[in-house]
Amino acid sequence: MTTLEAPGTPPPPPAAATRPLARKRSRPSEQLFKWLVMGLTAITIAMLIWLISSVVIKGAGSLSWAFLADKPSSNPDKAGFNSALRGSVVLMIITIFFAWPIGVAAALYLEKFATQSAEASERKVRERLGSGVSGVHAGWLRVRLSWLRVRPRVVHLVDVNISNLAAVPSIIYGLLGLAIFVGILGISKSLLAGGLTLAVLILPIIIIAAREALRAVPISIEQGAMALGATRWQAVRSQVFPAALPGILTGTILAMSRAIGETAPLIVVGGIVFGTAVPSLNPLDAGNEALFAMPLQIYFWTDQPQASFQAIAAAGIIVLLATLLVMNLVAIILRNRYSKRW
């Protein structure tokens, strides 16, 4: 024994343990279980690899600049993805134009204003009501008073509602778009109708993402501005919102990557277009342009019996997946570049 004891002291006799230490032994059930969970993980990843490689193998041969530049055709050798690409671009512009402002505004309200105590405002409104205002003004104040009273319940309802909306199957949004935009508003089955439907579809996703980004900004930033005399709105607009913006944009891009791959709601709203039109890239024309989109074109080709259409469907999928990849990379870069640790 190597000890640091003073010379001359006999080494201490150890007390006996009840039995010698057990040597390491193999536990087959342990190993089996470890291999099992590892294997299940590997199978999942292998399926993903199989998916991507089968698409790439099938579609790579059909990929070319001509494929991206050509319009659709009933001849698979001439058919191109150009109309689908243009359609998807216009769809995304419309979707973001409508979903982003509403989604971010809703998030700002829910996260920064709705939860503030209503007591002070309520007292002030009461005081003014008591101070002898009359007519329209008094009516308005009464409306405000009742709003302040029901506000907490409404906010709770909105909360529950948003999380439920995020779980509604996307095809249901298609039915909503079909009945409202096409049926009631009379918009033709067009890119505009499709874009509006996708906007409704990603609205809850944007609200949830924007709320998370706003929540990540420490309250001290807001309080610091308010301590300098800013109103809450000024503090939120000038301090909190800019700080949360990278996070909001990241969430927005991820929501768009959900929208750009959606197929079912577009079919329900716009049907499947067999035409060979090339839609204009100007979103103001979207109300008159037939509903083209990458996933719709892919679906149309996949549904054709000829094998050569399967190949260009695969090529279309490669383009769609590449687009998604780019969008996700942008989101990741944005997050890493601007994410601050508070």
Partner: peptide, 21 residues
């Protein structure tokens, strides 16, 4: 670390069994 005179840190000692004791 000798436990009853045996080094329990030794790599061939079974840590699971050890923790039961």
């Amino acid at each position: 670390i000798l436990f009853g005179g045996e080094d329990l840190l030794s790599s061939d000692v079974d840590p699971v069994d050890l923790r039961g004791r």
